[in-house]
Write a protein that binds this DNA or RNA. Sequence first.
RNA 1: GGGGUCGUAGUUCAGUUGGUUAGAAUGCCGGCCUGUCACGCCGGAGGUCGCCGGUUCGAGCCCGGUCGGCCCCGCCA
Length: 592
Amino acid sequence: MGTLKRSNYCNDLNQTHIGQEVTLMGWVLRRRDHGGVIFIDLRDRYGLTQVVFNPELNAEVHAKAHGLRSEWVIAVRGRVSGRPDGMVNSKLATGEIEILVDELRILNRSKTPPFPLDEDVEVSENLRLKYRYIDLRRPQMAEALVKRHQACQAIRTFLNDLNFLEIETPVLTRSTPEGARDYLVPSRVNAGRFYALPQSPQLFKQLLMVAGMDRYYQIVKCFRDEDLRADRQPEFTQIDMEMSFITEEEIIEVAEGMINRLFQATLNLEVAPPFPRITYREAMDRFGTDRPDTRFGLELTSLTEVVKDCSFKVFKTVVEKGGMVKSINAKGCADFSRKDLDDLTSYVANFGAKGLAWVKMKENGEWQSPIAKFFTEEERKAMAATLGAETGDLLFFVADTPAVVHAALAELRLELARRLGFMPAGSFNFIWVTDFPLVEYDQEAKRFTAVHHPFTAPREEDLELLESDPGKALSRAYDLVLNGTEIGGGSIRIHQMELQEKIFLALGITPEEAREKFDFLLQALELGAPPHGGLAFGLDRLMMILCGRESIRDVIAFPKTQKAGCPMTDAPASVARKQLTELSLRPDWKED
RNA sequence: GGGGUCGUAGUUCAGUUGGUUAGAAUGCCGGCCUGUCACGCCGGAGGUCGCCGGUUCGAGCCCGGUCGGCCCCGCCA
């Protein structure tokens, strides 16, 4: 760069700077070479500035500028000049001015980039990930990283002011049963033993409460070796927090304040807590899911009572077998085509529904429906009344086990909302889901598993149920849901050894196993553990929604592909045999 | 583990019933051009049709397999 020193960014010059000498550094986004005058759009993280090379002002520099190409890195020194009349570009923050260049330095050349940066063409994600450092030069990608930074900054400021301490916890830790598959790291100095990367710092943060740290938080990487989705990466970031001598209400208040501050800092938006709350039971009844998208209606209505004695065998049989019949009334959608209905039917089949019955409400309560003939007029009237069905409505029905009915209709509800445009950009609906069951029965494992995690406290009034009917016991857990995505969850924890042992027992973890795997926790619970609780947010998901993106990959600087690989570094990669033998590992796979 | 979908020029895509030399736009290279802002005009280069095998006189197109991207189910306390 020689003696040149950057004086300004590419977004901050305007009319007030006219006449000043400035030095800008950045990348060549576009060049418009008129043979005579040459225009370069110079780009840095902050924005764009048009720089001008005029042969009449400086022939030597103009000649040099002739060779500039896309993504070359340059420094220009020149004078800020107001643009001539009629040449102002209102689409540009710096559109009132341009730089008349006196000195041009080429700091680095660039090969032609593998994909264009100056146009809105959709580039394959694989290529973007392979050259992620180029992809991140695009303003919309940089913007996500900026917002993510602003969010983290807001979180730290907010929690610091409430006496929280940011404390790091180990990345090399031990594998514990339950939960997701662990990423394992072999120990060189302890042959045959392995560390596990943390699925979350859950137990460490509890132990920090036992240590009297009172309030802890951490923005921390977590690792789960499970298959990927648009909203799931094997390594992801949690905003993890824990408090001592605390109740659900206080935790929720802190969380709401933090989320509000975060939206202020990133979008300058008030999300106006307190957020509404719904119990798990009600969420399932009304939305078929424990993470309802509350931006729109299309709620589920039970018809089980109405149709239990009806003449339609399919419904009747399902009810007799203990199943249920539920319905969604898509108001005013009777104009859906046969193809729409076929598409929706095969869509819900993905979620286990064996069929999707529908009714188009015509004039005078007439049904246009393949199943109309199976019902008496009274039955049709009763069903329509229950659903509030009017002329022009489209009714959908699913009859099956509760699990299938809820899964199918919850997904149908979302698909309808997508088709009807009920998910506008920039709307953010939060809702707390409370009163989760403590445990659920795992048919495959033939035992109960924790709905939240094994350290979640049951409601005091449900303690007796632990032995008599564990499935009925409710927990002191809560999830925060944003636009139908679970963005965070937490609970009041168990802080007494006896209760923790009892829960382990209910989960089919024997006292011996508990002592082997969780001895450190049980000991701590006997050594002055205070009542405590907390929660964790998924930062990636939160930022994805906040930035209006479809995938968390768009808010992660260097994400993984669906096969958990990195096209840029080509990780995971094979290692030298010596590295394995040092770790006392003997491969049985074929080597390249 | 399973279902779906995609893979053709640097990039984004088209490619008919299987038929001669695989096209477009953009980018790239060269030339012209002094007020553009996705500058314009003229010319040129650029292809292992993901890979392997099969069917066929003949395959980008059909069949089998395989690799990779994406979406989903299972999985994700």
